[in-house]
Design a protein around this nucleic acid. Structure first.
Length: 869
RNA sequence: GCCGGGAUGGCGGAAUCGGUAGACGCAGCGGAUUCAAAAUCCGCCAUUGGUGACAAUGUGGGGGUUCGAGUCCCCCUCCCGGCACCA
């Protein structure tokens, strides 16, 4: 049964009737099922449109609605443009919130997750998304993570995954590892205990092996926003510098121990006044053995979180170890300090400090009264001594032995060469990017397919024994239940058959989201990770995700794609050809102060403006307006998408989302804006209804049109051109909708003549088609009304009639000295001389020229004339 | 702290490649319709001065480039995203 059979034109817009009917019709006829086409049977080009899958947190939030509406607009637009579209959906189902919910509500993470998925699937369907639901995946299901484990074992055996010690946040009261977000002001969120750093063994992906390709690959992504590429470039952080060895003894012989540092400013080597090492550095540990105060300081450094933002903003502290190293050129002794800002896991865990030419070293030297020795001066002009701030620019060396007088760049090369000859260093390229640690001491994640055997060591689980299934029926308290389940972790070693134990850590959930886009192509394949269908659909033509994923998720997915490529699983180098990063959905916040820094956050729906003061509806007492912030549970400023769908329908929600702001900007929620969107849809409905009430007309009118009708028809075809460009190239939907609104306003001024009615039919058909990607339900109903017996989804995107765009006369602005003074109307093909004459003859222009002759006349074709007087 | 972005009427935003600042919508005001209201339709709506034509000012702040700057360059302020275990 089609919509035509179930729906008759009603004078009132009824989304509550239209939307379920349209959705049922799409589902019944499998309208959005994507099929890989055998050669020749379908000439349509493929378009794989992917919105980032949601974490099944409980219910949809507005950020999801925005993300999926953007994806759906692009998917439906390309469908009308003749593409074979794939738009899938699934669930990023592993993660920390399920464990938190398990503790809070005494429910197993699996059960909680599956019930959330069922509810949210219903919500997504109510949004009317053109999704191929037959490809739905959930990352917590063994048939998904089995292949992740399979790839893990391949990579482990290839050496791309390895094990090493890494630092984590340790809660000494709960005896558990904390995520960075679970550390608040240096304390565990549940226990309140001061968090400590602890070293534990973890598995790592060698993403640094791919650093060069991840960097250069960005140049092959013209469809990515420049800012995302810039952030990734800076994150990878390729830098060219010099590794310098500081001997530990004054009469150093080749091969004896040295302290290694890396610097991009080897030209400042003669300005080194101390070296700083991390608390965990062997030199520091050694010194601490006989130095109680130093041991205490090192202990202090181990407090606090491991988050880089915390490390960078904390107070810079240090202590002298009493040890010295020797300058590789002058052999002068240099004191070794321990500093809390030097990270062991980063570079060599030691840095050379040049206070005169580095801001951070300068501040540290001032604090601890360390010497500041300047060795670089500007190429022109002198350095003001003594320094009041570090001079960080490159320049010319002085007080630097043989290197004095050389420019920085030149000196770096020369110093590196001499160091190389004396075996005390060399040129080196480093990356800021670190290897990706994927071990998590948590339950609700993909088990790491490793068996620890006392004789064979770490052994990968053979493919025939995969998946290593995560038990779902568990009771959660603090810490992972896997570590308390001997029946689960005791096993036989796959190699020697002896008694062994499974790894109880699970993988970072970023691993699942790094390859899901590929699995949508082969969602039901049970013989391989991917099959031939992946060759057909990949790469993703359009990916849509939040800007917050600009670095980690998108970099990991690019990395995984290259891993899969090197396994022969995918045909291309990059996963996402074009990327759109959407902004957040924000809303007003309101609160009451409860004292002691505590606030009671009130939902905007429960607050109203009463004679200029915000009050709570319930008690009429004033509340404080806290500004607009990202919709969140903690600020209680979320608007439930379900409530909007129930009250106005999905089309209104979608229209508001697309109209209120361009997709990359943050979007401010507005109840009156939603009403405005709804009002517009009612207007469109009414205009079509009234047009059809007056009887059938043909869009193909051969008679004369008035000049007004010609102008409106020109506007119609300009609008078609603009909207096509707005959606396809600019991906800016708010201006596309505004253009339709303008066209509607113009159309409202047409009369009831045959010519006008024919034009109205043509325009309404085009409007309905152009709005279809944004508001698919109402437009489907209106189309069947305008063109009985046909369906919108079988129709093509409207085309521009070039002959309608022709204009005889155009209007030009007239400026005098850059200020607007009037307008002139000239023939569209007027030559420069006549335009200039017309502008100079303009009375207001002459007035402002005040009798001065025109020195110059600038004509911008089709736009303006500027008279310089 | 570091990296990336943003700031335009009462509000959301438009101005796409340096060329009419404020499209479109929201709110507000005035009118039509109505017994009345809602809904709907029409009109006005940057600021200041002026009855008006018009003039001056105006895109976070300061400076610069240009015939011309919301747009480009330099400096500053505030806000947002990310910082490797939130997803």
């Amino acid at each position: 049964m089609t919509l035509t059979d179930t729906y008759l034109m009603d004078p009132h817009y009824r989304p509550d009737l239209i939307e379920p009917a349209a959705q049922q019709a799409w589902e019944a006829t499998a309208r959005f099922r994507a099929t890989e086409t055998a050669a020749g049977s379908d000439a349509r080009p493929k378009y794989y449109c992917l919105s980032m899958f949601p974490y099944p947190s409980g219910k949809l939030h507005m950020g999801h609605v925005r993300n999926y509406t953007i994806g759906d607009v692009l998917a439906r637009f390309h469908r009308l443009k003749g593409f074979n579209v794939l738009q899938p959906m699934g669930w990023d189902a592993f993660g920390l919130p399920a464990e938190n919910a398990a503790i809070a509500h005494q429910v197993a993470p699996a059960a909680w997750t599956y019930s959330n998925i069922d509810y949210m699937r219903g919500q997504l369907k109510a949004l009317g998304l053109a999704i191929d639901w037959s490809r739905e995946i959930a990352t917590c299901k063994p048939d998904y993570y089995r292949w992740e484990q399979w790839l893990f074992t391949r990579l482990f055996d290839k050496g791309i995954i390895y094990k090493k010690m890494a630092t984590v946040n340790w809660d000494p009261v709960d005896h558990t590892v904390l995520a960075n977000e679970q550390v608040i002001d240096g304390r565990g969120w549940r226990s309140g205990a001061l968090v400590e750093k602890r070293e534990i063994p973890m598995y790592f992906f060698r993403i640094t092996d791919y650093a060069e390709e991840l960097l250069s690959g960005l140049d092959e992504l013209p469809g990515w926003p420049e800012r995302v590429k810039t952030m990734q470039r800076n994150w990878i952080g390729k830098s060219f510098g010099v590794e310098i060895h500081f001997p530990l003894t004054p009469r150093h012989q080749a091969g004896e121990p040295v302290l290694k540092v890396f610097t991009t400013r080897a030209d400042t080597l003669f300005g080194v006044t101390y070296v700083a090492v991390a608390a965990e550095h062997p030199l520091a540990q050694q010194a601490a053995a006989t130095h109680p105060a130093l041991a205490a300081f090192i202990q202090e450094c181990k407090q606090g979180s491991v988050a880089e933002a915390d490390m960078a903003t904390m107070e810079k502290k240090g202590m002298a170890t009493g040890q010295v190293v020797y300058h590789p050129f002058t052999n002068a002794p240099i004191p070794v300090w321990v500093a809390n800002y030097v990270l062991m896991g980063y570079g060599e865990g030691a840095v050379m400090a040049v206070p005169a030419h580095d801001e951070r070293d300068f501040a540290f030297a001032q604090r601890y009264a360390l010497p500041i020795k300047a060795v670089i001066q500007p190429a022109e002009g002198a350095l003001p001594l003594p320094l009041t701030a570090a001079y960080c620019e490159p320049g010319v060396l002085f007080d630097s032995d043989d290197f004095t007088g050389r420019a920085s760049q030149d000196a770096i090369a020369k110093i590196a060469l001499v160091l190389k000859n004396t075996q005390l260093g060399d040129r080196r390229t480093t990356f800021r990017l670190r290897d990706w640690g994927i071990s998590r001491q948590r339950y609700w994640g993909c088990p790491i397919p490793i068996v620890h055997c006392p004789t064979c060591g770490d052994v990968t689980v053979p493919a025939s024994q995969l998946p290593v299934v995560l038990p779902e029926n568990v009771v959660i308290d603090i810490g992972s239940p896997l570590k308390k389940m001997p029946a689960w972790f005791n096993c036989a070693c796959p190699k020697c058959g002896g008694a062994a134990e499974r790894e109880t850590d699970t993988m970072d959930t970023f691993v699942e989201s790094s390859w899901y886009y590929a699995r949508y192509a082969s969602p039901d394949c049970d013989t391989a990770m991917l099959d031939a269908r992946a060759q057909h659909w990949l790469p993703v033509d359009q990916y849509i995700c939040g800007i917050e994923h600009a670095i980690l998720h998108l970099l990991y997915a690019r990395f995984f794609h290259k891993l899969m490529r090197d396994e022969g699983l995918v045909p291309c180098n990059e996963p996402f050809t074009r990327l759109l990063t959407q902004g957040m959905v924000i809303a007003e916040t309101y609160y009451r102060d409860l004292g002691e820094g505590k606030k009671q956050w009130l939902n905007p729906a429960d607050v109203e403006l009463c004679s200029g003061v915000w009050v709570l509806k319930a008690d009429g007492q004033p509340v404080i307006h806290g500004g607009t912030e990202k919709m969140s549970k903690s600020k209680n400023n979320g608007v439930d998408p379900q409530a909007i769908i129930d009250q106005y329908g999905a089309d209104t929600a979608r229209l508001f989302m697309m109209f209120a702001a361009p997709p990359e900007q943050s979007l401010e929620w507005s109840d009156t804006g939603v009403e405005g969107a709804h009002r517009f849809l009612k207007r469109v409905w009414k205009m079509v209804f009234e047009h059809l009430e007056a009887g059938a007309v043909s869009a193909h009118f051969g008679g004369m049109r008035s000049s007004n009708e010609q102008a409106i028809r020109r506007q119609l075809h300009q609008t078609i051109a603009k909207i096509s460009d707005d959606i396809e190239r600019r991906q800016q939907f708010n201006t596309a909708i505004a253009a339709v609104m303008e066209l509607m306003n113009a159309l409202a001024k047409l009369d009831a003549s045959n010519a006008a009615r024919a034009l109205r039919q043509e325009a309404l058909e085009a409007i309905v088609l152009m709005l279809a990607p944004i508001v698919p339900h109402i437009t489907e109903a209106l189309w069947t009304a305008l063109r009985p017996g046909t369906q919108l989804l079988d129709h093509a995107w409207p085309t521009v009639d070039a002959s309608a765009l022709v204009q005889d006369e155009i209007e030009l602005m007239v400026q005098v000295n850059g200020k607007l003074r009037g307008k002139i109307t000239v023939a569209a093909d007027a030559d420069t001389a006549s335009i200039e004459a017309a502008a100079l003859a303009h009375a207001d222009a002459q007035k402002h020229m005040e009798g001065r002759p025109a020195k110059k006349v600038i004509i911008v074709p089709g736009r303006l004339v500027n008279i310089v007087a």
